[in-house]
Simulated assay, not measured.
Amino acid sequence: MDWMAWTTPTAVFFIIIACTLVVFTVLAIKFPEVPRVGILRTETTRGDRLFITLLGSAFINLAWLGVVGANQPYALIVCLIYAAAVFRWA
């Protein structure tokens, strides 16, 4: 893996994403998904809500980096609140 500039935070990020995908796959097998209609009146499954959460979190982090610059761990708190809202109401 010398061809990439792997740092510890980057490796941890990708490991967490991979573990999340494995957990969601196991959940989908063990507890079949039933689409539900959320606040936006669109049917979503667990996987859809995960994708929306990951995409939104990327934008939150980019906006945080552009506006605040530093203190990125506080962006994680905002992302966790956003994820809880998406999984609850979307």
Rank of each mutant, 00 (worst) to 15 (best):
6 W>Q: 02
7 T>D: 14
7 T>S: 14
7 T>Y: 05
8 T>S: 06
9 P>C: 04
10 T>H: 05
10 T>F: 06
10 T>Y: 04
10 T>S: 13
11 A>K: 07
11 A>I: 13
13 F>R: 09
14 F>E: 08
14 F>L: 12
15 I>V: 11
17 I>H: 00
17 I>Y: 00
17 I>Q: 03
17 I>C: 03
17 I>W: 01
18 A>S: 11
18 A>P: 03
18 A>D: 03
19 C>P: 02
21 L>E: 14
22 V>F: 14
23 V>T: 07
24 F>G: 01
24 F>E: 15
24 F>L: 14
26 V>K: 06
26 V>T: 10
27 L>Y: 04
27 L>H: 02
28 A>L: 04
28 A>W: 06
30 K>T: 10
30 K>Y: 11
30 K>H: 10
31 F>S: 10
31 F>M: 11
33 E>Q: 15
33 E>F: 06
35 P>E: 15
35 P>N: 05
35 P>F: 04
36 R>K: 10
36 R>G: 06
38 G>A: 07
39 I>V: 12
39 I>K: 07
39 I>E: 05
40 L>E: 13
41 R>P: 03
41 R>W: 12
42 T>L: 15
42 T>K: 15
44 T>R: 13
44 T>P: 07
44 T>F: 06
45 T>N: 06
45 T>E: 03
46 R>D: 04
46 R>N: 14
46 R>T: 09
47 G>A: 07
48 D>Y: 02
48 D>L: 04
48 D>K: 02
48 D>P: 04
49 R>S: 00
50 L>W: 01
50 L>I: 05
50 L>G: 00
51 F>G: 05
51 F>V: 09
51 F>S: 08
51 F>N: 08
52 I>Y: 14
53 T>C: 12
53 T>N: 00
53 T>W: 00
56 G>Y: 01
56 G>P: 01
56 G>R: 00
58 A>W: 13
58 A>L: 15
58 A>H: 05
60 I>Q: 03
60 I>W: 03
61 N>L: 13
61 N>K: 07
62 L>G: 04
62 L>V: 10
62 L>E: 10
64 W>E: 05
64 W>A: 00
65 L>R: 10
66 G>A: 12
66 G>H: 08
67 V>G: 01
69 G>T: 03
70 A>K: 09
70 A>C: 05
70 A>F: 12
70 A>L: 12
72 Q>S: 10
74 Y>H: 08
74 Y>K: 05
74 Y>I: 09
75 A>Y: 02
75 A>V: 09
76 L>P: 02
78 V>G: 03
78 V>W: 06
78 V>M: 13
79 C>T: 11
79 C>P: 02
79 C>H: 02
79 C>S: 13
79 C>F: 01
80 L>G: 06
80 L>W: 12
